[in-house]
Design a protein around this nucleic acid. Structure first.
Lengths: 195, 195, 195, 195
DNA sequence: GATGAATGAGGGTTCATTCAT
DNA sequence: GATGAATGAACCCTCATTCAT
């Protein structure tokens, strides 16, 4: 469905990000998104076959960007523990800098399994694997205990950060600063998984 | 709105739990819930003013039960670390035993801020505080480092468990058993927060 | 349908009069009428088969009373012109004293032909005929011109009074007093039909 | 709400006129009106926000037309009494030629104060004032007695004509011809108000 | 007779999607 | 490709009426 004219496609996704974040997927109207994007309702259907597809494309695009950025950040450190701390900080920073996107991922990602039966959220799996790989590396380097199961630990760590950011997204004010929260949360896991 | 006849009220909530879990709130039809409950569509409106109210009541009821159970479980242990491990185990057990409820809380709770503007999820806050109180107790007993911020740690711990159970709820098969996951996750936090 | 227990029947009609006047027939709910009457919803259906029947019974009862009163008033005068003036005065007085009833007759009587296919409004015809008979008497006594067609004049006179009272019923304040309006309107007709 | 496409707007009003007249406002279904207009249900909501709005627009449009026609007719006469007679004739003629519209105004206008709380029926007031102005003119020219109160007389005259036409609209056959009725009714008022 | 919880048909309204221009 | 008026299926909710107690 995606045509060559990526500019308009991106404009639609940008508008949808704003509207989905404000109203939620189900309450967001195509006409609102079109208006926000400065185009006609029908034009959206030239670029996306269904309303669902906008959300999927939105995920893909945002996650691709997020994934790329995080990979770059992690590669700047060589120590697995430093990588974990950096991951925590940039994950929370990302949320801070992209409230709308964050809110959608927080809220609508959960629903994805419902209305997008066949949508395999590969990008999200890859994001989780960034953490899994760090842990694996830590185990291989003897820094992390062999008892640690990366498949559990990566989810636990992501969940910890995610819940923290959910709290921030939904409450309007931020109680703890990003550095503090990142350091706290990464310290639980670093100390908790240490050999 | 709730009448004396709690039996029917509970029957509706039970039906709604099943349908909301299967379809999600927005795709769930009142007529389906009514059919599942074995009553007429209109009967639902004797007990609930709006579709939204069913979800709110559902939250309240489930959370009340969950909260009560968890309080009891925690009180069976005196050591804060044992409490944490027990919390982890029973939280995951709860999810396992109440897949439908879990899925709704996982998925729809996120949306609550969207369609229930004025719904303050007090019960959830209390649930989080169960963890916060254990951590506080641990700090007071000198078992947990003074550096630990309970407001962050309680969310991190809940988030870790929550993401784990989300994984289980959405994927149909369970990769790790409950005991293992509970022990892993609680160990990260126990070791991570230890003095 | 009407049972012996006229007391309850009248209580229902009294309540319906109030509610129909306030909301109109279609927006009035049976449950509201029942509440106003201090009885259960279902009880109404012991006395009336349908919602429509309450309105019909209401008409019948009110019109019977109105008809009786007006007959008595007219009989107090012997001069046709005096009868006309008295009719005008008491018609307007009646409206004044029975705002609710008046509003229903004003508003709902018009709709009667729609939802009460088989309801022949005999009492209203008799009320009109009170005027018609006076005019006929006036013609016979040589007071009223032979050109006057009672079938037209009775409706014109009733309509004149009716429009005046409609104005009063719908606007909350009364601009002209009853005596003035009655004297004005009857004078148009008396002078207008005079031989 | 009203778009540029007045053609469709008028088509909807025409269909609504027919359906409202046949069934009454409350029993008329949007789907029926849409079918009668040869459009989809939803299309109606492009032009009118609510069912009520169709009725309001219908009034406005019809009254505007009626008002314009009557103004023209009256201006053709210079003598106030001739104006009154012409008013009577054309009012009744109008009813005759627009049975559906008449029935709606007769029946539904009465309900207007109920469901259109804030709708001020200005056009109707202007219509009444056409009569009021004639009477005022008659008084100024010394043709009509100074005792006559235009505010009462205009309503009485309109009411007389209105009741007559109501009779015609509701009974299917016409007992008296228009000319006769118009001449009778106007003569009551002309002779009745004469100086 | 009285109750009021339960019923379920019915209808106004929304909005994703289409398609003629 | 872009438009936006038109479509019509879908669904929440109301409320007159019923009937077991």
């Amino acid at each position: 469905m995606r045509h060559k004219n990526n500019e308009k496609s991106r404009k639609i996704i940008a508008a949808a990000t704003k509207i989905f974040a404000k109203k939620g997927f189900y309450k967001a109207k195509i006409s609102e998104i079109a208006k926000e994007a400065g185009i006609a309702d029908g034009t959206i259907y030239i670029y996306f076959k269904h309303k669902d597809d906008i959300l999927i494309a939105l995920f893909e695009e945002k996650m691709k960007e997020v994934l790329g950025n995080m990979k770059k950040q992690i590669s700047l450190e060589s120590d697995p523990f430093a990588k974990i701390e950096r991951f925590a900080y940039f994950h929370l920073k990302l949320i801070e800098d992209n409230k709308d996107m964050a809110e959608i991922i927080q809220v609508e990602l959960r629903q994805s399994s419902k209305f997008m039966k066949n949508y395999q959220n590969k990008k999200f799996a890859q994001y989780l694997d960034l953490i899994g790989d760090i842990i694996q590396e830590g185990k291989e380097k003897g820094l992390i205990s062999q008892d640690i199961i990366p498949g559990i630990a990566k989810r636990a760590f992501f969940g910890a950060l995610d819940e923290m950011s959910r709290f921030w997204v939904l409450s309007k004010r931020r109680k703890y600063d990003i550095e503090t929260a990142a350091r706290q949360i990464s310290s639980y896991f670093i100390n908790g998984m240490k050999n």
